[in-house]
Design a protein around this nucleic acid. Structure first.
Length: 592
RNA sequence: GCCCCCGUAGCUCAGGGGAUAGAGCAUUGGCCUCCGAAGCCAUGUGCGCAGGUUCGAAUCCUGCCGGGGGCACCA
């Protein structure tokens, strides 16, 4: 996401390619993936340096080289801009560099032809079998296709939603529920160990207002100023009294506390229930109260004092966050002795780090963007690297249109669309997919009318349909005896990669080969929407292939090797769709 | 005033310095006697404005214009 102001550590593309480059099948051929190709190109460059064809210092060989699918099929299977990048350091024109590399690339196993085109692109066409081999390697890899170890050994704390337990989760929260959950899985696929955490703001005046609102409603009075409205308040108040009528007999102060605590427990449980329903699971629900009772606040203060960034002024205790990019210092303890909310934030951060997380990620709404600098300053004040140990992702708000007009979301006013509403209206899969498919730093406007009435036009169905369609083909293939029903029992030597030469087979193979780096890009950029967009492209590639290439034998025709090879290709496509949908937390139906 | 996000097709939006900028929806017209038509094919429009960086900019930088959000000893 572009709102990310902190450069997070990125491995150079080349290094990461190496971890994907060794996908090999059970029969010895190596699939020529984009990763393997990038390795081969770099090897060619190094070889040219060694024999003196090009004079480039080792450190001038770029760390990042692009190997991409050209838009235009006439430009081969893959194109690279390496020659243009080397122009300066080599002191040659792009085309001269390209010409030097051509013969070395032609010598690479799996490359059929290389053309120099345009300003200096190298357009590479693969041998059919090296290209087609990818299908087999995906089927063999199964669930692990797309995994990498780029984040191996990293412990990430991912905090998202963190709503007050004073009302139902609404549409804005649903965006974080879907995107946070997907992002966590993206990190895991890349080898990280992730804890999904929900910070429960169960302390402070909002809780008291909530309790007072419940009490007022239960006693037939009107909700106090600044209190909570909405039918859910009425429902909870009624439930509290129904379950324990004696609550109304308590003394005034105890009654308020009883309403507050009972309301808190019920609301928290409701949030937890709906999130489970939404397939978003949290590993840790962290109570703000627990910060205070566990001594975490004291430990946090001690840590900050030890680092020398705490001072007193006008009777208050301050943290000198301006030392680290904040625009003003922040109060930890007010002159009246009360702790600020910010004090909890600092303690919470220190506590997370003490629990062993290398990286703490906060996903906050745009209305909290003023917190970015102060949170990062907190990390620095605690002696951490604010460019490595903390990240704050800011997401724009979700708006919703209904009947052509914007529906205002207001937690206090009662006119709210909750996650429950969303699930009821469009279902979990469609809701999650729609929320994930847009980058979170752009405002999202959901047209509920469209989402509800025309749900068949939702891209999620397009992707799921591709999966269901392939599943059907594979069922038929098993029924016809082309392959065993159990994919893991397929005979690897029944597949001939060299037969997949149709333009649309090649295009589908190309799309399949993109998956690992899409997953990596989603991880590096913290942008899970890339996976959704990719799946749509992959689904298109499959539908186009299916439209032009008959997979199963017609009627009484004999089974040909091409039939079998196409079945493998189908299975590879289904596997990749399933892997991607799993990351998004969206089901991959075998029938629809 | 200062800070953050966003200006791309009629609408909702993709697009990590590359070749002729893409999807979906909407419009119009084609494609099922056999693997799922929730599909495929065709149909014409667009990067807010002005500079800069370089072989090359929707993309990076600066300024301006327009839209949204935010400034606390609140939570």
């Amino acid at each position: 996401m572009k709102s990310l102001r902190v450069p997070h550590p990125r491995l150079p593309f080349v290094r990461t390619y190496s971890c994907e480059a060794n996908i090999s099948s059970s029969v010895g051929l190596t699939a020529m993936t984009p990763a393997a190709l990038a390795e081969a190109i770099l090897a060619a460059v190094r070889a040219a340096c060694v024999d003196g064809s090009i004079s480039i210092a080792a450190q001038d060989i770029p760390a990042e080289i692009k190997v991409e699918r050209p838009r235009n099929r006439d430009h081969g299977d893959y194109a690279t801009n390496i020659a243009m990048l080397l122009t300066k350091v080599a002191g040659l024109t792009p085309r001269e560099v390209a010409e030097i590399l051509v013969p070395r690339l032609l010598a690479v196993d799996g490359i059929e032809s290389v053309d120099v085109a345009g300003p200096g692109f190298l357009n590479i066409t693969l041998d059919a079998d090296a290209h087609g081999e990818l299908a087999r390697s995906i089927v063999v890899s199964g669930d692990s296709y797309g995994r990498s170890d780029s984040l191996a050994g990293m412990h990430i704390n991912l905090e998202f939603i963190s709503a007050n337990p004073t009302g139902p989760l609404h549409l804005g929260h649903s965006r974080w529920a879907a995107c946070g959950d997907a992002l966590a899985r993206v990190f895991e696929i890349n080898g990280a160990e992730v804890t999904r955490e929900f910070y429960v703001n169960d302390l402070g005046v909002q809780m008291d207002k909530f309790g007072a609102s419940l009490q007022a409603v239960a006693e037939g009075r009107s909700v106090p100023d600044g209190g909570y409205h909405g039918s859910y308040v009425v429902d909870i108040a009624a439930a509290i009294v129904r379950d324990d009528p004696s609550i109304l007999e308590l003394p005034e102060e105890a009654r308020l506390v009883a309403f507050r605590e009972s309301g808190y427990q019920r609301q928290l449980a409701a949030q937890q229930d709906v999130l489970e329903l939404f397939h978003t699971h949290f590993d840790v629900w962290y109570s703000e109260r627990a910060l205070h009772t566990s001594g975490a606040v004291e430990r946090g203060f001690a840590k900050l004092r030890e680092q020398g960034h705490v001072y007193e002024l006008d009777g208050a205790v301050w943290l000198r966050t301006t030392d680290f990019g904040d625009d003003k210092d922040r109060v930890l303890i007010k002159a009246d002795g009360a702790l600020t909310y910010f004090a909890s934030d600092t303690a919470y951060y220190v506590d997370k780090r003490a629990r062993g997380f290398d990286l703490c990620i906060y996903m906050l709404g745009a209305d909290h963007h003023g917190y970015v600098n102060r949170l990062r300053a907190v990390a620095a004040c605690a002696g951490d690297d604010q460019n490595a140990n903390i990240e704050v992702l800011i997401g724009q708000l979700v708006k919703m249109k209904k009947g052509g007009e914007e529906v205002r979301l207001s937690k206090r006013a009662g006119n709210i669309i909750t996650i429950d509403d969303l699930i009821d209206e469009v279902g979990v899969d469609a809701a999650r997919y729609t929320l994930i498919r847009y980058p979170v730093d752009s405002p999202l406007v959901l047209d509920l009318d469209l989402l509800v009435q025309r749900s068949n036009d939702n891209p999620v169905y397009y992707v799921q349909y591709a999966h269901a369609r392939i599943s059907s083909v594979l069922r038929n293939a098993a029924d016809l005896g082309l392959v065993p029903a159990d994919q893991s029992a397929w005979a690897a030597d029944s597949f001939d990669p060299a037969l997949l030469t149709h333009e649309r087979e090649s295009a589908l193979l190309g799309a399949l080969g993109e998956y690992p780096r899409v997953v990596r890009a989603a991880s590096e950029l913290r942008e899970p929407h890339r996976i959704a967009r990719y799946l749509e492209e992959l689904a298109t590639a499959y539908h186009r292939f299916y439209d032009a290439c008959r997979v199963l034998p017609m009627g009484d025709e004999p089974v040909t090797p091409l039939n079998i090879s196409r079945v493998w290709l189908c299975a590879a496509a289904r596997q990749t769709l399933a892997n991607g949908l799993a990351i998004l937390g969206v089901s991959a139906p075998t029938r629809m």
